[in-house]
């Protein structure tokens, strides 16, 4: 069975009016990844490999769980790990790392909450 890496209880305090941007940054070389930022309100942004997407304002995200799910692999024959950072408004939330020998096709799931500061 493929491994799923879950990162729970990730709180990012934010004001109602502040826009939140989520950044996926692959540090390992030559990865292939698709990330979906899923909220129950619809209009779910996607990021291919690395990139940044606006996911909503504090008010829109408040009181709900936002799921950030990444399916990744790395076909670089010179690389032996999968390493990826997740940032919210440039603040590091998670740096995921796994050896390719442990899982070549991991699923990484972040459970994000946006309380009042």
């Amino acid at each position: 069975m493929r491994k799923t890496y879950r990162y729970r209880d990730l709180d990012f305090p934010v004001d109602d009016a502040t826009e939140v941007k989520l950044t996926v940054e692959f540090l390992s070389d030559g990865g292939i990844a698709e990330t979906l930022i899923y909220r129950s309100i619809g209009n779910n942004p996607k990021i291919s490999d690395s990139g940044t997407e606006l996911i909503g304002t504090g008010a829109e995200l408040r009181g709900k769980i936002t799921i950030c799910i990444t399916e990744a692999t790395n076909s670089n024959l010179n690389e032996d790990e999968i390493r990826v950072r997740y940032l919210l408004n440039d603040t590091l939330m998670v740096e995921h790392h796994n050896l390719k020998s442990e899982e070549i096709n991991p699923t990484i799931i972040l459970f994000l909450k946006f309380p009042m500061p």
């Binding site: 692959f26 540090l27 390992s28 070389d29 030559g30 292939i32 490999d49 690395s50 670089n76 690389e79």
Partner: peptide
Amino acid sequence: NHGLSITEY
């Protein structure tokens, strides 16, 4: 690591 995309690699 250099953060290369698959195409850059």
